[in-house]
């Protein structure tokens, strides 16, 4: 079982979707990386950490019926690939909704939930999940 630091060091991105922006081309990436895959060497030193807004649309989705043991209590859950407004894509659960109400293109917003816990005495991991964004009435 992993020790606490492996998870802990990623908390800024897990809690607050901290990614990076390449100041050479303006592209956003999540999680942070130190080299832009488009600009290569020109991006070194120009990758700045930014908090992504956490809003986006479902790019693809699936309802997971067979899950890792430590999250089996959450089954079945919806896993989606979310395209954020900044352009980066992330994988995460979509919660507090019925799977049948979701489709490709459904707008979602980030929230924070328990991801998993290391048994009854271990660390509890928290991180991002998504909830469907209710369309505001015009």
């Amino acid at each position: 079982m992993a020790t606490a630091p492996r998870f802990w060091r990623e908390n800024p991105s897990r809690y607050n979707l901290v990614g990076v922006e390449c100041h050479n081309c303006g592209r956003h990436f999540f999680p942070p990386r130190s080299i832009c895959p488009v600009c290569h060497r020109k991006s070194v030193g120009k990758m700045e950490k930014v908090k992504l807004k956490g809003e986006g649309k479902i790019f693809s989705l699936t309802e997971v019926q067979e899950s890792p043991e430590e999250i089996s209590m959450q089954k079945p859950y919806v896993l989606a690939m979310v395209e954020l407004v900044e352009g980066a894509r992330v994988s995460g659960q979509v919660i507090d909704c019925d799977a049948c109400d979701l489709e490709i293109g459904t707008p979602v917003r980030v929230t924070l939930r328990k991801l998993s816990e290391e048994g009854p005495s271990g660390i509890i991991h928290y991180g991002y999940k998504f909830v469907p964004l209710k369309e505001k009435a015009p």
Binding site: F59, T62, L115, G127
Partner: peptide
């Protein structure tokens, strides 16, 4: 860590 099992990732491809 976010719940994306190996079948789930392929399911995302399939759905798309």
């Amino acid at each position: 860590v976010l719940g994306a099992t190996f079948p789930a990732l392929h399911a995302l491809i399939a759905r798309r």
